[in-house]
Computed example of a mutant assay.
Amino acid sequence: MSIADTLVVLPGRASARLATMRQGLFGSLGNTLITIATSALLLWIVPPLFRWAVLDATWSGTAQDCAAGEGACWGFVAAKFRFILFAFYPPELQWRPLLVMVLLVMLLVVTAQPRFWRRELFVAWPVVIAASWLLMAGTLTPPTVPTNAWGGLPVTLFVWTVCFGLATPIAILLALARRSKMGGLRWVAVAFIELMRGTPMVAILYVAMLILPMAIPGGQLIDKNIRAMIMITLFWSAYVAEVVRAGLQAIHDGQYEAATALGLGYWRTMLLIVLPQALRIVIPGMVNLAIGFLLATSLLAVIGIFDLLNAARASATDPQWLGFYNEAYVFAAAIYFVFCFGGSRYSLWLERYLKRSDRR
């Protein structure tokens, strides 16, 4: 395509998008009324919020300086920044959770790139997770830090990464078991999935804290973070299994028949033909669940684990900075938004990338 053709195509695409937007906003009487109502609501909310967050805000100083102003106290966020991110982790050792965050984010970024979808990636996951745990605990680099002192964003990322990473292969097996022709296996999978999906996550966390230790033979004590991650993984796997099952049901029977005609067995058919197509179909659902699971990690507060949100709430209980909950929650919400919005954009990019791969 020449440069002149490109210049013609780009305005055409822009005009098409503008027409689609105009149709969505004002294409009917209902759409017009909704657009007007939404615009009025934004005009009522946004200017006072902008004034509080920016124009009248106190960007530095003490709590007394903030009390004299009428806007947000971002000086509080600056003063409690490290506590919100790392909670009670010893300040002189906070390079450890910082390094753990870098490792986990790098692992997620590499995993998100299709060009790295190789066998080596399956080795990288347990290595990075084990290294992160040992680094946080101080096993390799003394002094050790008990898990009760862990908190903030590293704990949120660690629990989310480990639990979702482990829940996905378990969910695939559950989805296959639920569609199995073996009646006993199918009913066991159905019972597990429905039990987990019908139980609140708070109850699952209480089971991890109170019931799971009694079920362990010999009265051995397992760290509460590990107990919580075990139960969360099982809980999340039930939800992911239903999404994967929807993808399996979308595969046409001709795919199975063609694999049988080629002499492929059950597992080779699933690994080479069915699952790659099914997982590609459910990418939006998987990303949506991942975003929801990230937000659900805030429930760890009910069992005394200081995740990001709980650390933000606790930062406002400091007697020197008492009561600045709005600023703490806004800062935590901004961090959550960065990860969730990034995940949604990645989902759209991956869908487009896979479509281009199909065309090639």
Rank of each mutant, 00 (worst) to 15 (best):
L85N: 04
L98G: 11
P90C: 01
L104N: 01
R82Y: 11
R82T: 13
A78L: 13
A112D: 02
L93E: 02
A112Q: 04
V102N: 04
F83L: 05
L108S: 13
F116T: 14
F76Q: 07
L121T: 05
M101A: 10
V110T: 13
A112L: 07
W95R: 07
R118W: 08
V100H: 00
F116H: 15
F122Q: 07
E92W: 02
W95P: 09
R96S: 02
Q94E: 04
P91K: 03
M101C: 15
A87N: 10
L98W: 08
L104D: 00
R118E: 10
R96Q: 06
F81D: 02
L98R: 06
F81Y: 12
F88D: 15
L121N: 04
M101W: 03
R96L: 03
E120G: 15
F86V: 03
V109F: 03
A87E: 03
L108T: 10
V100W: 00
L99I: 09
L104G: 00
F86M: 04
P90L: 00
Q94P: 01
L85H: 06
R119F: 15
L107V: 09
L99F: 09
F76S: 07
P114E: 06
A78S: 13
L85R: 05
V77K: 08
P114Y: 08
Q94L: 02
L108E: 07
L121C: 02
P90F: 01
L93M: 04
A79F: 05
V100N: 00
V100P: 00
L99D: 01
F122N: 11
F83R: 03
M101F: 07
P114S: 10
M101V: 12
V109G: 03
P90R: 00
F88P: 09
L98S: 11
L93Y: 04
R82D: 13
P114G: 10
L121F: 07
F116E: 10
L99M: 11
V77S: 07
K80L: 09
E92M: 05
L108D: 07
L104I: 01
R118S: 14
V100Y: 00
F86C: 05
R96D: 02
F76P: 09
L103C: 13
E92V: 10
T111M: 14
F83S: 05
V110W: 11
L85P: 07
R119S: 15
F76E: 02
R119D: 13
L99P: 07
M106C: 11
K80F: 08
L98N: 04
V102S: 08
L98A: 14
Q113C: 14
I84K: 05
V77I: 14
V100R: 00
V102Q: 06
K80R: 15
P97S: 12
L99E: 02
R82M: 12
K80P: 09
V102K: 04
Q113G: 11
R118L: 13
V77G: 08
A78Y: 09
A112H: 02
Q94A: 04
T111P: 10
L98M: 11
R82P: 07
F83H: 11
W117H: 15
R118F: 08
L104C: 00
L107Q: 08
P91V: 06
F88N: 15
P91Y: 01
F81N: 09
F88C: 12
M106N: 06
F81H: 13
V100Q: 00
L104H: 00
E92K: 08
P91S: 06
F116M: 14
L93R: 06
A87W: 06
L107M: 10
V100A: 00
T111D: 14
F76I: 07
P90H: 01
F81M: 11
A87C: 03
P114F: 10
